[in-house]
Write a protein that binds this DNA or RNA. Structure first.
Lengths: 209, 209
DNA sequence: CATAGTTCTGAACGGTAATTCAGTTCTGAA
DNA sequence: TTCAGAACTGAATTACCGTTCAGAACTATG
């Protein structure tokens, strides 16, 4: 019977089911690609459908709304990343080692899920170009300071480009969070950020006294 | 003459000029407030005009487009912040001290320009709620690790809430930047971020050997 | 083939909001 | 008081998508 042959190496479902699954996967792949590169607002349903080589209406046979697709994509990936990090940290006891393992796992996962991570952690919406440009002003500053600090022997020889991104990213997030509260003094926020950047979070392994 | 009296204590321009300047300032103030609290897309021109107590059309007598207003606001403030930081760092020589002064100046400026800094560094667009929620998963994780690290004496006693924001902010920015390139290995990025967080950028003042 | 069901299509609909503009109100010099 | 020009108004225009839907195309069985 043709049916048997057709379904023989499929794990489940009829040919129709597989066709459906394929269309869905194509839409999802197109959506990931476009959302990651152009951001939510700039990505039109018509674009996604066209990229998946189906008609506009077909999109709605597979996803209820544009927002639902976006939300599912983002949440599902974040949860998987979190689980993977948890699994990796689980057998490790020391907090310092835990932190190290978490960071390793995080970047490995990001590397394997580039498109969605660009959505999750990227700036790509309408004004991101403008905001990027503005952040760049600060990043350039930090890069310079890092480079000259390294030259003077005051800073460790980390790549200035990475340090620039890292510090401005930290400042950006901390600032937006801090500006919404009023229970943390400017002295504490300044001091914590400064010490974090200068000396890190770790306590020295064997303090002399 | 009425004109003399009217213009006596104005630094420049006629009454009309001042009226015009006032309307413009009111629109700008309303825009800052609304953009900071609701984000770009959720802020309608009609809202801004209403908040400034003028008609919708009046907006366009002062600004060519909504985007232009947004862009001007953001760029102008960023440049002022940069200038202020430069002025503060200028007389300082040591890179470590420069970094400290830059951070102090940054937060003082942010504090004095809250509205625009919420636009500049804040997440407030349509999906920021979703993305915030997702980031929160990672932030919670870092907070936990920080708290238990402090308890174990492995980490310095920084407020876990601040450390959570700081680390996820750094990861977020670095990740989005790194994912767009292919000239930095996963080992270097992981290692730099990890060492930055653990021990900071500073070289120890007086290494024993 | 015939046909019932399934999948797909893309033009049309509806809501939203930026922008325009024809007309109104205000201002101040004469 | 008059009136030209400046400032303002908000309904109408326009553009832009997300979403729907009536029908076309395809598929698999008898």
């Amino acid at each position: 019977m043709p049916i048997d042959i057709a379904t023989a190496h499929a794990f489940e479902g009829s040919r129709q089911d597989r066709r459906r699954a394929r269309t869905r996967a194509e839409l999802l792949a197109a959506a990931k690609r476009l959302l990651a590169s152009k951001g939510f607002h700039a990505t039109k349903i018509a674009d996604i459908a066209a990229a998946a080589d189906v008609g506009t209406g077909t999109f709605y046979l597979y996803f209820p709304t544009k927002e639902a697709l976006f939300s599912d994509l983002v949440k599902e990936t974040a949860l998987r990343a979190k689980e993977e990090m948890d699994r990796a940290k689980e057998p490790v006891a020391d907090p310092r080692a835990k932190a190290r393992v978490a960071i390793e796992t995080f970047f490995r996962f990001a590397d394997r899920n580039r498109d969605v991570f660009k959505i999750l952690f990227g700036h790509s919406a309408q004004f991101d170009e403008l905001l990027r440009e503005v952040h760049q002003v600060f990043i350039a500053d930090v890069e310079e300071n890092q480079a000259s600090g390294v030259a003077a022997g005051a800073f460790k020889p980390f790549r200035p480009a990475i340090v620039g991104q890292a510090i401005v990213g930290m400042l950006s997030q901390v600032t937006s969070w801090w500006l919404e509260r009023d229970d943390i003094s400017i002295e504490e926020i300044t001091d914590t950020v400064h010490r974090l950047l200068q000396d890190g979070i770790a306590v020295k392994e064997n303090p002399h006294e």
